[in-house]
């Protein structure tokens, strides 16, 4: 596990943290693994902006999860997908999808 700096098609896992404070990572995605759909570039960390503080630059990713990964294989339609934007500090790299 490294600090995530993933590229599209990399497998990433959302950290299973729950700090009491303002965060933008939905509960239902914590601990779940998905594929980076695209990189959205740097943005200011809303977890600091939310308190009126100067904010660090953080990278934002769109991550695609299968419904089976989120809700289990007996969910409504396991191959349907959910895309969400997740900040880099909430991601752990599982494996790269890049040819190496």
């Amino acid at each position: 596990m490294t600090v995530a700096n993933p590229k599209p098609a990399d497998r990433v896992r959302v950290r299973a943290d729950s700090p009491p404070g303002h965060v933008r990572t939905p509960w239902y995605l914590r601990g779940k693994t998905g594929i980076v759909e695209r990189c959205l570039g740097p943005t200011l960390n809303p977890e600091q902006l939310a308190y009126g503080l100067p904010a660090n630059s953080v990278k934002l990713y769109r991550v695609r999860f299968t419904m089976a990964e989120i809700w289990g294989e007996y969910c409504e339609a396991p191959n349907d997908t959910l895309d969400a934007e997740v900040f880099s500090h909430w991601l752990e790299l599982e494996e790269t999808g890049r040819a190496s």
Binding site: A16, P19, P20, W27
Partner: peptide, 14 residues
């Protein structure tokens, strides 16, 4: 993953 505490009320997905 079942152990985390502190889900906030507004985080209602699912």
């Amino acid at each position: 993953m079942s152990e985390f505490v502190g889900r906030q009320w507004h985080d209602m997905g699912g």
